[in-house]
């Protein structure tokens, strides 16, 4: 986690309390897409930043956004989520990619990546570029 700069740190404003939770892929592997999204959003709504092993399918990501929008409409204190997927695919050769696809097929999911999802009331921004990821918190 990274704070913006020293002067901001001296500003003494405090970040909201939060929990960091790791969710192994095995825990959501057998759930259908609806229940997978529901489980993730239930965790996020408890002021928790979730580190999920693996990633959602594209259609699950768009469903997550749709369900997030419905939650914003339903609950004034909920403002949405920040999310990022972290992987290092770009450094790999074709053989590595084939190996990874076989492993993913066996496990039923892409375990070589992590997904970070946090409530927008706590996570201000997740800055990502191919080499690093920075998580900025709200004050």
């Amino acid at each position: 986690m990274k704070k913006r700069n020293n002067s901001e740190r001296r500003g003494m404003s405090r970040t909201k309390d939060f929990t960091l939770q790791f969710l192994p892929y095995a825990e959501i592997k057998d759930l259908d897409s609806n229940n997978r999204i529901r489980r993730i959003l239930e965790i996020i709504r408890e002021d928790t930043i979730l580190i999920l092993q693996g990633k959602l399918k594209p259609e699950e990501e768009s469903k997550l956004i749709k369900d997030t929008m419905n939650l914003i409409r339903g609950f004034e204190s909920f403002r949405g989520v920040e999310l990022a997927i972290v992987s290092n695919y770009s450094d790999r050769s074709l053989i590595d990619k084939i190996k990874r696809n076989i492993v993913n097929l066996l496990y039923g999911g892409d375990l070589d990546v992590i997904t970070i999802i946090g409530p927008a009331t706590i996570v201000k921004e997740i800055k990502k570029n191919p080499k690093k990821i920075e998580l900025f918190l709200k004050k």
Binding site: K57, P58, E61, S62, I65, L83, I85, I126, K128, P130
Partner: peptide, 14 residues
């Protein structure tokens, strides 16, 4: 490298 962009591209590719 914003997840929204990646999600849109991923959904269209799918």
């Amino acid at each position: 490298y914003n997840q929204v962009n990646i999600t849109i591209v991923g959904n269209l590719a799918a």
